[in-house]
Amino acid sequence: MKTTLALLVASLATAGLAHAADDGRAIDLNALSPTPEAIEQALAAKSKHDRGQANDRHDRRDRGQTKADEPEPKACTDAAITDDQKTQIEAAAFTAKKEQIQQKADLKIALMDYAQTVMDQTTDKAAAEAASQKITDGATKLVSGHLALANNVFYDILQPTQRKNAFLCLVAKMKKHHKKNRHN
C-alpha cells in the first residue's frame, strides 16, 4: 500500500512540477522522490505522537510486554508452518526485498527522467510518452515482484493443505498492521 501511495504522491509531484514549469516558478527536483516521512506528514496532519498518543510499541514496552506477548491469529497457528519453511520464506523475502530496492531506484530514476523531459522545451509529446512508459513499466515490475513472492511462498514453499490458513494469516496480520498504523 505504501508503495502504491508513494507512486501516487510521486505522480502528483511530477504533475505539480510540470505546472510549476509552465508558470516559470522554481522547481525542486527532490519533490520527485518524496521520503516516507514526507508522505506520512502529507497524509496525516498530526501523528499519534503529536496528539499526545503514544504508539502501541511504546505502550507495550512501558507495560513490560513485547511483540511476542501478542496472541498469534488462529489461522497462523493452523497453518502449521515448519521451521524449514520459515527459513525458506525468510530467504525468499530477503531476495525479493533486494529486487524491490533496485526496482524502486529504477522507478525514481524514471520519474526524474520524465520530469526532465517535460521541463525541456525542445522535447515533443512522443518523448514524454516514452518517459512515462518507463514509469508505468517500473510500477508494474514493483507490483509483479510482490505477487511473485506471494506465489513463490504459497505454491513452492508451502504445502497445498497449508495454503488457505497461511493466506488467512497474512490477511489477518495485514489488517492488524493497517489498523495499528492508521493516523486518525
Results as ranks from 00 to 15, higher is better:
residue 43 L to N: 07
residue 57 R to N: 11
residue 83 D to T: 10
residue 140 T to S: 15
residue 71 P to S: 07
residue 111 L to T: 04
residue 91 A to L: 11
residue 49 H to V: 12
residue 30 N to A: 09
residue 106 D to F: 03
residue 172 A to Y: 01
residue 86 K to Y: 10
residue 84 D to G: 10
residue 16 G to V: 03
residue 35 T to Y: 09
residue 99 E to I: 03
residue 71 P to C: 01
residue 122 T to D: 12
residue 25 R to W: 08
residue 133 Q to R: 09
residue 109 I to N: 10
residue 104 K to H: 14
residue 46 K to C: 12
residue 132 S to R: 09
residue 143 V to M: 07
residue 42 A to R: 07
residue 139 A to Y: 06
residue 78 D to R: 05
residue 88 Q to T: 03
residue 48 K to L: 10
residue 64 G to L: 01
residue 36 P to V: 00
residue 37 E to N: 12
residue 24 G to S: 01
residue 127 A to I: 04
residue 169 C to G: 04
residue 136 T to H: 15
residue 82 T to S: 05
residue 102 Q to W: 04
residue 120 D to C: 01
residue 85 Q to V: 04
residue 39 I to S: 03
residue 45 A to L: 14
residue 38 A to F: 00
residue 119 M to R: 14
residue 53 Q to M: 12
residue 71 P to M: 03
residue 112 M to T: 13
residue 24 G to F: 00
residue 21 A to R: 08
residue 9 V to P: 05
residue 171 V to F: 02
residue 100 Q to S: 13
residue 12 L to V: 07
residue 53 Q to G: 08
residue 5 L to D: 11
residue 164 K to N: 13
residue 182 R to F: 05
residue 45 A to W: 12
residue 21 A to S: 14
residue 6 A to N: 08
residue 163 R to Y: 04
residue 30 N to T: 10
residue 176 K to N: 13
residue 7 L to N: 13
residue 71 P to W: 05
residue 33 S to Y: 00
residue 174 M to P: 09
residue 30 N to P: 06
residue 2 K to F: 14
residue 76 C to V: 01
residue 173 K to F: 07
residue 3 T to R: 12
residue 78 D to L: 03
residue 10 A to M: 10
residue 134 K to P: 02
residue 116 Q to N: 14
residue 176 K to P: 10
residue 23 D to Q: 15
residue 15 A to Y: 02
residue 49 H to K: 15
residue 102 Q to E: 14
residue 117 T to W: 07
residue 141 K to C: 00
residue 86 K to I: 05
residue 107 L to K: 04
residue 112 M to K: 12
residue 134 K to L: 14
residue 106 D to W: 00
residue 181 N to Q: 12
residue 28 D to L: 00
residue 148 A to S: 02
residue 146 H to N: 15
residue 138 G to Q: 04
residue 10 A to L: 08
residue 40 E to T: 10
residue 19 H to A: 15
residue 153 V to R: 02
residue 48 K to R: 12
residue 7 L to Y: 13
residue 25 R to F: 11
residue 43 L to W: 03
residue 129 E to T: 01
residue 133 Q to N: 11
residue 107 L to W: 05
residue 57 R to Y: 09
residue 141 K to P: 02
residue 179 K to W: 06
residue 52 G to D: 11
residue 86 K to P: 05
residue 73 P to E: 05
residue 115 A to F: 04
residue 15 A to G: 06
residue 182 R to S: 13
residue 120 D to T: 00
residue 84 D to M: 04
residue 104 K to L: 13
residue 89 I to Y: 01
residue 160 P to Y: 05
residue 28 D to M: 02
residue 160 P to V: 08
residue 34 P to W: 02
residue 120 D to R: 05
residue 7 L to W: 09
residue 105 A to M: 08
residue 79 A to C: 10
residue 6 A to I: 06
residue 111 L to P: 04
residue 52 G to S: 03
residue 169 C to M: 03
residue 115 A to E: 01
residue 89 I to D: 03
residue 21 A to D: 13
residue 60 R to L: 13
residue 176 K to Y: 14
residue 47 S to H: 00
residue 122 T to I: 02
residue 31 A to K: 05
